[in-house]
């Protein structure tokens, strides 16, 4: 097998590995088995494992989630949504059933269900195709919520989630699908990972903002400024020990939030690190407090653009903000790169 692999290929490989291991696993979702196969993540699986196990479904998100919960009481189910926004229809089943089934029945029941939810961005996805309520999910007891960044993250998180007896939601960002990295089977999922070291500050990033953190690393290396960069993989449960330890050293905490600031994962991290007794300064960099408008002339102001982010960080650290960001700023903010033609 060729390694490194793309994020979307890593999904496919994890699904294959799981479907092969347990013949009772079902994989379903709108578009599974269609010519585009959920942005090529389920390609070939129906051919390999049959239509009884890998299949397309009616437009019935809420019922299907409940159906997966029921199937998951006996066996294992994987459900996919091409947008996080479509999963909103099924919050009753997720929260009132899946998340508390083990608890509510005194530990006598468990439902083995894994839900993939893809977050959209760009090309006018607009107010109802670009949402990510990760913090809302993070507040639900009994639910596990992951937001993987690279191919290795998704490969291991997805595979192990399928066999986790708890309900798991995996948030995937559409703009990470074409990125390549090496995958290696791990025995366990990491919930948080330090990906770079430095003393100037601690940068905490999640999912798609990990990409921003790597870009910031490159930009700040122009003046040999280094950060501790900590990648959050598990939003629920959320662990902040590693962050607290780093902040104790750096005294500066910068949080790159993938959504907006209010009631966010970043503000939660901030509060928890604060109550751990460490003294530090902090800055959250996030979307504007609003739904994302469709217009190209508005959306650039909702998402933090890299040039502005650098400025904010320099201000925060009281350092000169002369950095060359040109390589990382596209004129067209609504596409991941100039060769990308969709689908979004």
């Amino acid at each position: 097998m060729k390694n490194p692999v793309k994020f979307k290929t890593a999904i496919n490989l994890a699904l294959q590995r799981a479907l092969k291991k347990d013949k009772d696993i079902l994989l379903m979702g709108l578009g599974v088995g269609d010519p585009k196969n959920i942005f090529e993540t389920t390609t070939g699986l129906q051919e390999k494992f049959g239509k009884k196990r890998v299949f397309d479904v009616p437009c019935s998100e809420n019922a299907l989630t409940g159906i997966c919960v029921g199937y998951g009481l006996k066996k294992k189910a994987i459900l996919t949504h091409q947008r996080f926004d479509f999963m909103l229809l099924s919050f009753d089943q997720i929260i009132n059933n899946a998340a508390k089934i083990h608890f509510m029945y005194g530990g006598n029941l468990q439902s083995n269900i894994t839900i993939r939810a893809i977050v959209g961005k760009g090309w006018g996805q607009g107010p109802t195709h670009s949402q990510n309520f990760q913090a809302m999910l993070g507040s639900v007891p009994g639910l596990k919520v992951y937001f993987p960044f690279n191919s290795n993250d998704i490969f291991n998180i997805l595979y192990h989630s399928i066999f986790d007896p708890n309900p798991v939601i995996i948030i995937e960002h559409r703009w990470l699908y074409e990125l390549e990295s090496k995958i290696k089977f791990q025995k366990k999922i990491k919930s948080v990972e330090k990906v770079s070291s430095g003393n100037k500050g601690t940068i905490v990033c999640i999912g798609n903002t990990v990409l921003d953190a790597y870009i910031l690393k490159k930009i700040f290396s122009q003046k040999k400024i280094k950060f501790d960069i900590i990648k959050i993989l598990s939003i629920n449960p959320l662990k902040v020990d590693m962050i607290a330890k780093s902040v104790k050293k750096t005294k500066n905490l910068i949080l790159l939030e993938p959504t907006h600031k209010s009631m966010s994962v970043s503000s939660e991290i901030l509060a928890r690190v604060h109550t751990s007794g460490v003294l530090f300064r902090s800055k959250i960099i996030s979307n504007e407090e609003m739904s994302v408008p469709t217009s190209f002339y508005l959306s650039d102001k909702v998402y933090p653009q890299i040039k502005k982010t650098v400025k904010i960080i320099c201000n925060f650290l009281s350092i000169n903000s002369k950095f060359d960001t040109s390589k990382y700023s596209y004129k067209l903010h609504d596409i991941p790169n100039k060769n990308f033609r969709g689908p979004f």
Binding site: D85, G126, P127, T294, S295, L298
Partner: peptide, 22 residues
């Protein structure tokens, strides 16, 4: 410019709204 193609409205003729969620 907020809604785009999938969220149209023209109250003056009674076309109230359209939605991107099936």
């Amino acid at each position: 410019g907020i809604g785009g193609s999938m969220h149209l409205t023209d109250k003056s003729v009674g076309f109230i709204s359209s939605s991107a969620i099936v």
